[in-house]
């Protein structure tokens, strides 16, 4: 599926929720279910230090597509990360760069992307873009 299609899928899922608690319950489920990254990959160079929570991100190139693995020590952050991985992993670098990462705002999680939240997500998105730039044909 394309980035746009996956984004739409997530937006539709979130449209079902009527309040914040439901959204969080869903994010917590996502966060709990996914073992996102090998413990071995939780190394210093993959660490994105936030003030509130920490995020690890690793990236590899497979068949011209970027494969992201990520994790966090905070479960809501982890839930959001799993959404980002679902959208951007297994995509071509060019496609990632032409995306605006706007679906996070559409599903009402924009505050989690505010730089002052310092939860590592903003830096994670910047890192995803960096990897995409570095691997552009």
């Amino acid at each position: 599926m394309s980035i746009k299609e996956i984004e739409q899928e997530i937006i539709d899922e979130f449209a079902l929720f009527t309040d914040w608690m439901e959204k969080y319950e869903y994010l917590i489920e996502l966060g709990k279910n996914l073992p996102l990254i090998d413990e071995a990959q939780k190394k210093e160079e993959n660490l994105i230090e936030g003030c509130q929570s920490r995020v690890w991100l690793s990236c590899s190139l497979e068949d011209g597509k970027l494969v992201f693995k990520a994790d966090s020590d905070a479960i809501i952050t982890k839930g959001i990360i799993s959404l980002l991985v679902r959208v951007y992993s297994n995509q071509k670098p060019e496609d990632i760069l032409s995306s605006d990462f706007g679906f996070i705002e559409t599903i009402g999680l924009k505050e989690n992307l505010s730089p002052t939240r310092a939860n590592g997500l903003v830096s994670m998105i910047a890192k995803i873009r960096d990897y995409a730039t570095a691997n552009c044909a």
Partner: peptide, 9 residues
């Protein structure tokens, strides 16, 4: 649990 999760909810 992580403190930021609790605070956020």
């Amino acid at each position: 649990t992580h403190p930021s999760d609790i605070a956020q909810i």
